[in-house]
């Protein structure tokens, strides 16, 4: 029997770098083989340690279960530790992920569109060329980044009780 296929993990945006190089190695050249950190592991590390979400919140944001998230996170830590200790290069690529993008609504031609390239800011509507557009959220979003993040997460999860509890947690963070 073949194993169950992995669910797609949502990554907010790709990392700004491709990896890391070690320097000042005592043993001369570092081992040629880099440690491959997958994009989902990078995202897990970013959500947990950089943005400071707990694992349950982060798992909902990535669209995976909490135990799966813990596994991804543990793999990330193990790989980074291995790169540090063995003095290997760290290369961030691969993994079963998709990127989320922001949506906009144009008042002039009444269309919705997304911005696939986060690095570039949209100047005009791709359809009519006017700049009469606003960011679009299918649910009215609350104030504060934490709450908004959770709101956008809720759209993607069928489990209402889980998203509800996450939302409450986010409220606490905002206060």
């Amino acid at each position: 029997m073949s194993p169950r296929t992995k669910t797609l993990r949502k990554v907010l945006s790709p990392p700004i770098i491709k990896g890391f190089n070690p320097y000042g190695s005592e043993a001369g050249k570092p081992p040629a083989e880099p440690v491959l950190l997958m994009l989902e592991e990078y995202e897990a590390l970013r959500l947990c340690d950089y943005d400071g979400f707990n694992q349950l919140q982060a798992s909902v944001m990535m669209g995976v279960s909490r135990p799966t998230f813990t596994r991804i996170y543990a793999a990330a830590l193990q790989k980074i530790a291995r790169a540090f200790v063995e003095g290997r290069r760290l290369s961030i690529k691969g993994g079963k992920v998709y990127f989320d993008s922001d949506w906009f609504y144009c008042h002039s031609c009444k269309c919705y569109f997304n911005n696939p390239d986060k690095d570039k800011k949209l100047e005009q509507c791709p359809l009519c060329g006017k700049s009469d557009f606003v960011p679009f959220d299918s649910e009215p979003a609350g104030e504060g980044t934490g709450k908004r993040r959770c709101d956008s997460v809720n759209k993607n999860t069928g489990d209402q009780s889980l998203s509800l509890s996450v939302n409450e947690n986010c409220d606490n963070i905002n206060r």
Binding site: L8, K10, V97, Y98, F99, D100, S101, C109, K110, C111, Y112, F113, N114, N115, P116, D117, P126, L127
Partner: peptide, 16 residues
């Protein structure tokens, strides 16, 4: 939607 997001193809939804 996630597929096109990963491929960096822009989606334009016209509701009319």
């Amino acid at each position: 939607k996630p597929m096109l997001d990963s491929l960096r193809i822009q989606m334009i939804v016209v509701k009319d």
